[in-house]
Simulated scan of single mutants.
Amino acid sequence: MSAVVQGWTIVTQTRQQVAPNHMQGVFLATCGERWMVGRQYDGKKGTTGFSKDGEWWHARYFDGDTGTDNMLAALDAYPDAAMKAAVWDRMFHQDATESVCRFLAGGEEDGRPKLSAGWKQTEVLSGVPVTSSTIPMPFHEAKYELLWFIIWSTRLSAKVHLTKGVTMSRHEAVTLVRQATGPIRFEMGYNTYWLAQEEDSTNAL
């Protein structure tokens, strides 16, 4: 279960020794539709980076129109905070995104079907359409994979801003996946996405 500080659920955090017996750290947290990038207090090895009351050093808050926009903005700001705290590495952004997708997908649910997750270019003017899909897997894992496609793999290539009002927005897509209880299929930007049962997965392509 994720830790909660001052009402904020910590989705991911990094705390490392940056000098002999000296620790620095950052964390990414959410509260409802709001997201935050926080800087922990500097401290000695063994400290958590939070005060006894759960306070942190300072933070940037993201509370715009949609939770998805806030989440994406926080994800983009998180590596910069890590660089300033000297805890960044080249996989930092990708690892943080993975943590966010797993948080949004939720935990395992009994009685849910195994599904495959996938996406493809909806329209291709020439050549072979780009597509990617998984094998059937536990429900929450399939949701994670689909969220990964939406938030990481196709964040730029889907060109959602060019189809505003025509297809789902990214926020609507993320919300649909989070609330899904079975197979789904939808268009977002220039791509089609799905969660499909095994017998339907070949038809999804």
Rank of each mutant, 00 (worst) to 15 (best):
residue 4 V to L: 03
residue 5 V to Q: 11
residue 7 G to P: 01
residue 8 W to N: 02
residue 10 I to S: 04
residue 10 I to V: 15
residue 10 I to T: 11
residue 11 V to W: 03
residue 13 Q to V: 02
residue 17 Q to C: 05
residue 17 Q to I: 05
residue 19 A to C: 00
residue 20 P to T: 09
residue 23 M to K: 02
residue 25 G to N: 06
residue 27 F to T: 03
residue 27 F to R: 04
residue 28 L to D: 05
residue 30 T to K: 06
residue 30 T to W: 00
residue 31 C to K: 14
residue 32 G to F: 04
residue 32 G to N: 05
residue 35 W to E: 01
residue 36 M to Q: 09
residue 37 V to G: 08
residue 40 Q to K: 15
residue 40 Q to I: 02
residue 41 Y to Q: 14
residue 42 D to W: 07
residue 42 D to A: 15
residue 43 G to P: 07
residue 44 K to E: 14
residue 44 K to V: 14
residue 45 K to W: 06
residue 47 T to N: 08
residue 47 T to W: 04
residue 48 T to V: 02
residue 50 F to S: 00
residue 52 K to A: 13
residue 53 D to W: 01
residue 54 G to H: 06
residue 54 G to V: 12
residue 54 G to Q: 09
residue 59 A to R: 07
residue 60 R to F: 06
residue 63 D to K: 04
residue 64 G to P: 01
residue 65 D to L: 10
residue 66 T to E: 03
residue 66 T to Q: 03
residue 67 G to A: 08
residue 67 G to T: 05
residue 68 T to W: 00
residue 68 T to M: 04
residue 69 D to L: 11
residue 71 M to F: 03
residue 72 L to F: 02
residue 75 L to C: 14
residue 76 D to I: 06
residue 77 A to C: 11
residue 79 P to G: 07
residue 80 D to R: 12
residue 82 A to Q: 06
residue 83 M to R: 15
residue 84 K to R: 15
residue 85 A to E: 15
residue 85 A to W: 02
residue 85 A to Y: 06
residue 86 A to H: 14
residue 89 D to K: 07
residue 89 D to G: 08
residue 89 D to S: 08
residue 89 D to E: 12
residue 91 M to T: 14
residue 91 M to L: 10
residue 92 F to V: 13
residue 92 F to C: 11
residue 92 F to P: 06
residue 95 D to P: 00
residue 96 A to L: 08
residue 97 T to S: 14
residue 98 E to Y: 09
residue 98 E to I: 13
residue 100 V to S: 04
residue 102 R to I: 00
residue 104 L to R: 01
residue 105 A to Q: 07
residue 111 G to N: 10
residue 111 G to W: 10
residue 111 G to K: 12
residue 115 L to M: 14
residue 116 S to M: 05
residue 117 A to Q: 06
residue 117 A to K: 04
residue 117 A to P: 01
residue 117 A to E: 04
residue 117 A to Y: 03
residue 118 G to H: 05
residue 119 W to S: 08
residue 120 K to I: 12
residue 120 K to H: 13
residue 120 K to Y: 09
residue 121 Q to C: 00
residue 122 T to I: 00
residue 124 V to C: 12
residue 124 V to Q: 04
residue 127 G to F: 09
residue 128 V to W: 10
residue 129 P to K: 05
residue 132 S to C: 09
residue 132 S to I: 00
residue 134 T to C: 07
residue 134 T to Q: 05
residue 135 I to W: 00
residue 136 P to V: 14
residue 136 P to K: 11
residue 137 M to W: 00
residue 138 P to R: 08
residue 139 F to S: 10
residue 139 F to T: 11
residue 141 E to H: 09
residue 141 E to S: 13
residue 141 E to K: 13
residue 144 Y to K: 11
residue 146 L to M: 09
residue 146 L to A: 08
residue 146 L to C: 10
residue 148 W to F: 08
residue 149 F to C: 09
residue 149 F to G: 02
residue 150 I to M: 11
residue 154 T to R: 05
residue 155 R to H: 12
residue 159 K to D: 11
residue 162 L to E: 14
residue 163 T to F: 12
residue 168 M to W: 08
residue 171 H to A: 15
residue 171 H to C: 13
residue 175 T to M: 10
residue 175 T to C: 10
residue 175 T to P: 00
residue 177 V to P: 02
residue 178 R to D: 01
residue 180 A to T: 11
residue 180 A to L: 08
residue 181 T to Y: 05
residue 185 R to M: 12
residue 196 A to Y: 01
residue 196 A to E: 10
residue 199 E to H: 15
residue 200 D to N: 13
residue 202 T to V: 15
residue 203 N to Y: 03
residue 205 L to C: 09
residue 205 L to Q: 12
